[in-house]
Design a protein around this nucleic acid. Structure first.
Length: 786
DNA sequence: AAGTCGACAGTTTTT
DNA sequence: CTGTCGACTT
């Protein structure tokens, strides 16, 4: 293997890229060449003679994984390095060891919609009304708990949150339904794998040895389950390299814990730490502005952003009169830019919520500026796509009740809700899948003749197609058979007289193309190590379940990109617009009284600013039409924080002096007068927030100090698990009340009591010295027998 | 069994 | 302004 050239890396980049064994933390600021470092490091490892299949590179998005693969291939040709998302990696692993968690390798992956449907069924089964607790709320509660590595046994409903109580009741039933349907939700992919690693030491050791070099990208966004998986695979071979930037952690609301990156060095004391602070993307003014903003965050590792780039244009802060003006102004500016020879793809407009895109779209369309709205999850959410994929799922996994429910009456077979309810009840009583029940529809009491006939026909149709599926290696051919024999294609064609129908047909055709592509690529794929080949259908279903962003941003397209701040992470554009930077929108009103969340919002703006290479324009409007109502807005506190020598303040609402003084700026912000602001507070309506009621009910807990107990517990859990995984002897001690113990700092003392059991049991110690009485989690190893 | 109407609520969302 | 949900009608 030819050693790869590292000439065009700077010193720190080279340090990181040539690191081979042992833990490595790369703190990579925006635009610091992180991907380059990661890909060069992979190439370097291979150059060192490390077998490619021992290397695993994990990312959060398929886009990032694909990019990584492409660039590694550019460096050292196609390699058997496992590169993919956490979920994809987990899905593969789980397929091989599915029986250990009660699944078969043909398990289905449910998307959030299907998972919600299962949750609803669980609620019906328990006779719980969902009128006061929306299903989505319950789903997120359970999802968050899972990502915190909690179980129904360890999950404690937070005080004052009725949704938690309901979720706790539903959760076990939900899991039973999933298991019976041989299905997992997105979260389970990770949770099951984490459990495998925790509960099967031999398997864990085997996987640890197989995946010796692990790289994790965007480590600041890992949650407890991911943390657990990564640690579980890095015990015997702690060649764990993580890259990330705490200042770009923006998924805390999904359970990501910034702790993981902030305390990597505590987790791995021998870790080598490399900081990539040199920015190759943005002008000095843009970086300076980003730097000033993020400095307002307290919980962070100080990090500089260094550049050799010229100052460039100052970051422009624009105070517009109305949201309409803002959109028009931006559209005009872009339009002029295009007239002056700029390409649309040099522009990007970022907003906090998708709903804010509307006025911009209208304005751009009005001027004939081509744009693309970057929203993932479009294609596979289409009804027709989900229908067809559900058919394939049902062929792969006949117990997939959600898939069954989706397609059983599509096209219509005279099977209505009533009939399905009877079928479901019967199936539950007899512990059968819906499909199995359908095959025996004749013996189900209460079904109408028509329904029984329809169900029977459906079951026979499935049997015939299953036979095709078993014999047919081509997914595209199978898909064609499904479309024909189910009458789905015909049904669409009959329906497809209008434009929408045409779209549906086109979408199905596109899915067929995707299947053909998979078929074509299949024999060329490097064989999976140590496992039976994944069959094409399985691979296709895995991809459709886990690749949600076919509709994703196409960088080569000649269009202005419109997306949320979140979606922009990892991208860069010469000219970036940050719109609707107003109090209540960014920062979002729900984060205003939560310091942690406010810091995350600030990081969001940091991410937004640092997307810009040449120009950044941030704006707000005094009057905003949003969601059908008009509200008076005040400029975001973040605009004030950004303001400095690198920024310039303009716009029709800006003070006439045009000076940069923050006082002027603040004055401009409140220029709507007191009456207007009062109106604002009335216009900002919404359901009583649970957090607020919690505040009122528990006034002794000041918001500034409050952290989510569930979160703390999650950290605790993860840390405990990590200790267990680490096999640290410290954690192995057993304790009894009354015994003498020693603490490294507090000296010796008497263990007076133990509460709880297992690794999280807490001991109370009265120290001989001045430390007094303290409590310890015994599993943490802070104590040892004296 | 399937369509239509009105009430209602509405961050972000890598998988 | 949207999309979703439940009740109501054919």
């Amino acid at each position: 293997m030819q050693p790869i050239s590292l000439d065009h890396l700077n010193d720190s980049q080279r340090q990181a890229a040539t690191h081979v064994g042992g833990p490595l933390l790369v703190l990579a600021g925006p635009g610091s060449g992180k991907t380059r470092v990661v890909t060069h490091r992979i190439a370097h490892l291979i150059g060192q003679g490390i077998p490619a299949r021992q290397i695993v590179a994990l990312s959060f998005t398929n886009k990032a994984a694909d990019e990584m693969r492409r660039r590694v291939t550019d460096l050292v040709g196609p390699q058997a390095v496992e590169m993919g998302t956490f979920h994809r990696f987990a899905a593969r692993l789980l397929r091989r060891h599915a029986t250990l968690v009660g699944l078969t390798s043909d398990y289905s992956i449910l998307d959030p919609d299907d998972a919600s449907a299962v949750l609803k069924r669980a609620a019906r089964k328990l006779g719980l009304s969902l009128t006061h607790t929306p299903i989505d709320r319950l789903a997120t509660t359970i999802s968050r708990a899972k990502n915190d590595l909690l179980t129904p046994d360890t999950f404690e409903p937070r005080w004052g949150r009725p949704a938690d109580e309901v979720a706790l009741k539903l959760w076990p039933v939900y899991q039973e339904l999933l298991l019976a349907a041989n299905s997992v939700d997105f979260d389970d992919l990770l949770v099951h794998v984490a459990r495998l690693l925790l509960d099967n030491p031999e398997l864990r050791a085997m996987l640890d040895a197989r995946h010796r070099y692990i790289l994790v990208d965007e480590y600041q966004d890992t949650n407890s389950v991911q943390y657990c998986i990564v640690r579980g695979l890095s015990v015997d071979h702690p060649n764990l390299a993580v890259t990330g930037d705490p200042d770009q952690a923006i998924y805390g609301w999904r359970g990501a814990s910034i702790r993981n990156i902030l305390e990597f060095e505590r987790d791995y004391p021998t870790a080598r730490v490399v900081k990539l602070e040199h920015n190759y993307r943005s002008s000095a003014n843009i970086l300076g502005t980003a730097d000033r903003l993020i400095a307002h965050n307290s919980r962070r590792k100080p990090k500089r952003l260094v550049t050799d780039a010229p100052a460039g244009d100052r970051v422009r802060i624009v105070l517009d009169s109305t949201s309409h003006d803002e959109a028009d102004r931006i559209a005009d500016e872009i339009s002029h830019g295009l007239a002056a020879g700029r390409s649309p793809r040099e522009y990007c407009i970022l907003f906090r919520t998708n709903a804010l895109s509307r006025s911009l779209e209208v304005a751009l369309r009005g001027r004939g500026v081509p744009y693309q709205l970057v929203r993932g999850l479009e294609f596979f959410k289409r009804r027709e796509i989900r229908d067809v994929v559900a058919w394939l799922r049902l062929l792969k996994n006949p117990r997939d009740d959600e898939a069954f429910m989706r397609v059983v009456n599509v096209p219509p077979r005279g099977i209505g809700r009533q009939s399905l309810e009877l079928l479901t009840a019967w199936a539950d009583d007899h512990r059968q899948s819906r499909l199995a029940a359908a095959a025996r529809a004749a013996s189900i009491p209460g079904l109408t003749k028509r329904a029984a006939k329809g169900l029977g026909e459906f079951a026979r149709l499935h049997a015939r197609l299953a036979a095709v599926a078993a014999a047919e290696p081509s997914v595209a051919t199978l898909l064609g058979e499904v479309l024909d024999r189910t009458g789905y294609r015909q049904w669409l064609a009959d329906d497809g007289i209008d434009e929408e129908g045409e779209d549906r047909i086109a979408n199905v055709e596109e899915l067929l193309t995707a299947a053909q592509q998979l078929d074509a690529s299949f024999p060329n794929r490097p064989p999976e190590e140590g496992s039976a080949e994944i069959d094409p259908l399985g691979a296709f279903l895995e991809t459709t379940a886990l690749v949600a962003d076919t509709d994703v941003w196409d960088p080569s397209s000649e269009r202005v990109a419109l997306m949320t701040f979140h979606a922009a992470k990892g991208l860069e554009f010469p000219i970036v617009y940050l719109v609707a930077m107003e109090d209540g929108i960014l920062p979002h009103e729900r984060s205003l009284d939560h310091p942690e969340q406010l810091e995350e919002e600030r990081r969001l703006v940091f991410v937004g600013i640092t997307r810009g290479m040449q120009e950044v324009h941030a704006s707000c409007a005094r009057i905003r039409d949003y969601r059908g109502t008009r509200r008076i807005s005040a400029p975001s506190v973040f605009l004030t924080e950004m303001t400095g020598s690198e920024t310039v303040l303009t716009g029709s609402e800006a003070p006439l002096s045009g000076t940069l003084a923050i006082d002027d700026f603040a004055a401009a912000g409140s220029m709507g007068s007191g009456a207007d602001l009062d109106d604002t507070s009335q216009l900002v309506t919404g359901p009583a927030d649970e957090d607020i009621s919690q505040d009122m009910a528990a006034p002794e807990t000041p918001p500034a100090r409050r952290t989510s107990p569930a979160r703390d517990r999650a950290f605790q859990t993860a840390a405990d698990l990590a200790e267990r995984l680490g096999g640290l002897s410290k954690a192995k001690h057993t304790y009894e009340a009354g015994q003498r113990v020693r603490h490294v700092e507090y000296g010796e003392g008497l263990l007076t009591g133990i509460s709880g059991t297992g690794p999280r049991s807490v001991g109370t110690v009265i120290f001989d010295g001045p430390a007094g009485t303290r409590k310890f989690i015994l599993g943490h190893g802070a104590l040892e027998p004296a």
